[in-house]
Design a protein around this nucleic acid. Sequence first.
DNA 1: CTGAAAGCGCTTACAG
DNA 2: CTGAAAGCGCTTACAG
Lengths: 325, 325
Amino acid sequence: MSHPTIKDVANKSGVGIATVSRVLNNSSQISPQTYEKVMKVIKELNYVPNATGKKLSQNRTHVIAVIVPVINHPYFAKLIEEIELAADARGYSILVASSQHRIEREREILKRIAQNEADGAIFVTHYEHKEEEFKGLAIVSIDRHLGKDIPIVTTDNYDATKKAVEYLINTGCKKIAFLGTKPSQASEVSLRAKAYLDTLKEHNLEPFVINKIVSHGNENEVIDEFLNKRHDFDGVYVSGCILANTLRNRLEELDDIEIPNDLQIISYDGDFCLNNYSPTTTLEQPIKDMANKCVELLIQLIDEEKIENMINSFNCRFVKGKTTK
Amino acid sequence: MSHPTIKDVANKSGVGIATVSRVLNNSSQISPQTYEKVMKVIKELNYVPNATGKKLSQNRTHVIAVIVPVINHPYFAKLIEEIELAADARGYSILVASSQHRIEREREILKRIAQNEADGAIFVTHYEHKEEEFKGLAIVSIDRHLGKDIPIVTTDNYDATKKAVEYLINTGCKKIAFLGTKPSQASEVSLRAKAYLDTLKEHNLEPFVINKIVSHGNENEVIDEFLNKRHDFDGVYVSGCILANTLRNRLEELDDIEIPNDLQIISYDGDFCLNNYSPTTTLEQPIKDMANKCVELLIQLIDEEKIENMINSFNCRFVKGKTTK
DNA sequence: CTGAAAGCGCTTACAG
DNA sequence: CTGAAAGCGCTTACAG
C-alpha cells in the first residue's frame, strides 16, 4: 500500500481507528501498552496522517490566507515573511495571493476563503469593498477600515509623521515637501499627509504636496514631478520606502545636491534599500510585531473569541540614518 | 443555516446531491430545466461549495507549496509572485514557507506535503537532503540537483557568466574579481565560479575569488573582504543582486572610484536595486519563464505525466546598465 | 481506557 | 439525464 491510512494502522495494531486517532493527537488517556503498540505500527508502515481528512472532520484548515497588492515589494515581502513565522509558531500555514491591484482578483481570493481554502485572511487592500463581502469571513485588515466587525492593525501614522516633520523643522528646514503614493481608498495612511499639513501650519510654513495614486513600479512618476517642480527645498518627507530609495537614487544622479546638508530626507516604512552604509532616516514600522498581532487577532476571530481592541496601532520607531542632520 | 451544503441545495431543488455536483462541475449532460432549477437554489441559498470535501473525495488539494530560504529577498519575492500567477492561471493556490536557512524547517515543510497539505512543491534549498526524503512527493527543484527523479529548473550559469567575463575583458579589464555567496551544497550556481576561472585562464589573467557561504543579510562580509584586499581591480563579476547592490552602495561611500571608468561591474540575477536611473549591468534570469516552467513541470508530476526534460535551463539576458562601458 | 458508528461535504462508478 | 450509495480519511460523542 502506497499511502497507508488510519484504518491500516488500526487493523495492523489490532485496535480501533478511534484509538489510533487518540494516539496521534494525545487527545485522551491511552494505556501505555496500546500507545506503544500503535506507535510501532505507525513507524513500520511509515504512516503519515492525511491533513484533508482532519480538516473535513474538524471543519478547520489551519491555513491563513495573506492577500497583498503585490508580493515583489520589500514591505510586503517582509510582512509575508513575518506572518509566515508567526503563523507557523501557532500551527498555521499560509496561503499567499496577490491582487495585482485588481479588485476582481481580490474577490476571487475572498471567495476561496468562503470555500474553506483557509480559515481566514490577513488582508491588505487599496480597494473599496462592501462590508457584506466579508460577511461570515474571519478577516484582519492592515491600515484600512473595512467594516466595524473587522479588526485593523496599523501604525501611528499621524503622530510619527508629525514627529518626523518637527524633526526636520527643528534641524533647520524651512521648505519641506511631502511625497506620497496616495492610497486609492480611505486608509489610515492618509493621516500622514494630514499630519504633515497640520504640522507645517502650526509652524507657519508653506506646504508642498505631491500625493498621487500610483502602482508599485511607477514610483518614479512622483519623483519626476518633484524634481521638475523643485525650487529650493531643504527637507522632504517621503511616505514610503520605495519612494525614498527612488528619490535618493535620482538625486545621486543629479550630483548637485548634498544629503543631508542641502536636503534632508525622512521616510515612512523603514529602510529597505539594502544600503547598510548610508541608511535613510526613517519611521520604521514594527512589522514583526504587527504580523504577530495580525495572526493573533485572526486566530481569535477564527476561534470566535472576543476581540479586545478593534483598532491596534503600533508605534513607529524613529531610526536616524544618514539622510538627516 | 449558516453554511448550506450540497445536501441543502439538493433537498431544496428536489434533486439528488449527485445532480447538484454535476451542475457545479459541468461534469456531464444535465437537462436545461434541472440546471436552471439547481442554479436558482444555489443563488437563493448563497451556496458556496466546500473545497475540503472536494479535496478529500478527489485526493487532490490543488495547492502547490513553495519553499524558499527566505521570503524577504528580492529574488525570492519575485519568484514567489510569478509562481503564484502561474499557479493561479492553472487553478492552483500556493502555500509559502521559508526554511530560514534551517534544514529542520525544510523537513517540517516536506512533511506537510506528505500530509497532503499540498499536492507538491517547488523547492529552493541550499541543504543536503537524502533522496529518500522526497520519495513519493512531487517536487521540482530550482538550481539544485536533488535526485534523478526530480526535475530541475535553472539558468545557463556557465555560459552567461563566461559571456559576462568576456565582456569585461573585451572592454579592457585586466584585473577582474569574482564575488559570490557560495551555496553550501553542490548547485548549478557553482558553475559561475567555474566559468569565471576558465575564462580568465583562457585569457591568461590572474583570478581573484571571494566566494563565502553567507546568509542573506550578511552580504557585507563578502564586500568587506573585497574592499580590504582590493588592489587595483578594474572589473568585478558579482554572483547575485544583493551583493551587487551592496557593493555599489559601499563604493559610493568611498568616493574615489568612478563607475564604470575605474571599475566595471556585472552581476547575475537581474537588477533588483530599484535604481531605474543607474541600473547595474546584469545577467537577468527570466524569472517569469522559470516560474511558469516550474509550475508546468510540477503539475505534470502531480498528474503523473511523463516529463520530457529533467534539466530545464533558461538563458539569462545580458542587460546593459550603467556599470559597464 | 477503548471500539463501533455517525458524520464532516464532496465525487463518482453503477444502475436505471 | 438522474439518484442512491459507497467512499475519500479523519474526529468525536456515546456507550461500555
